[in-house]
């Protein structure tokens, strides 16, 4: 019984980093209330590859037009199986609410004939409260 418990514990501990690293971005949905002219979202891009990759964060509106948001940091290198927080501050632009997509983009294998850019986008809804 003790051996089984030890095995289960080791398995659980071993699986934890894999599970945590197996997301490209979280959360992918969110609703934020703000009392200021902007709302903030913290997302966590993750690198599921066994190699370091360059990650870019972009913010788009519903029509995939770029949004002038503050992204810290917007471009960075992410180590294998690693994740890091990114703060995105989106202005309301005079509107009472705003829907945006926050996208994590990477080209894991650049400099080849047909490259694939993997893009994971989360949808976020900001409400301005008076």
């Amino acid at each position: 019984m003790k051996h089984i418990l030890n095995l289960a514990t080791a398995l659980a501990v071993g699986l934890m980093p894999i599970a945590a690293g197996a997301q490209s971005m979280s959360p992918m949905r969110g609703e934020v209330n703000s009392f200021t002219d902007a709302f903030a979202v913290r997302v966590f891009p993750a690198n599921p590859y066994d190699q370091k990759i360059k990650v870019e964060i972009h913010v788009y509106d519903q029509d995939f037009q770029p949004v002038d948001a503050k992204i810290s940091p917007s471009v960075f290198q992410l180590g294998s199986q690693a994740s890091r927080p990114v703060l995105v501050v989106v202005p309301f632009g005079g509107a009472a609410e705003r829907k945006v997509r926050i996208c994590t983009e990477s080209i894991p294998f650049p400099n080849q004939q047909t490259q694939i850019r993997a893009q994971i986008c989360g949808k976020f809804f900001g409400h301005r409260k008076s």
């Binding site: 490209s24 979280s26 992918m28 949905r29 294998f109 004939q113 047909t114 993997a118 893009q119």
Partner: peptide, 26 residues
């Protein structure tokens, strides 16, 4: 469990040209 999606690129593609040279395609 919130909505999650992971994309892991395994390999890029390769395009070749057709005999009539009007198609460059994978």
């Amino acid at each position: 469990v919130t909505a999650t999606c992971t994309l892991v690129v395994g390999s890029n593609g390769t395009m070749t040209v057709s005999p009539d040279l009007q198609s460059l395609s994978s």
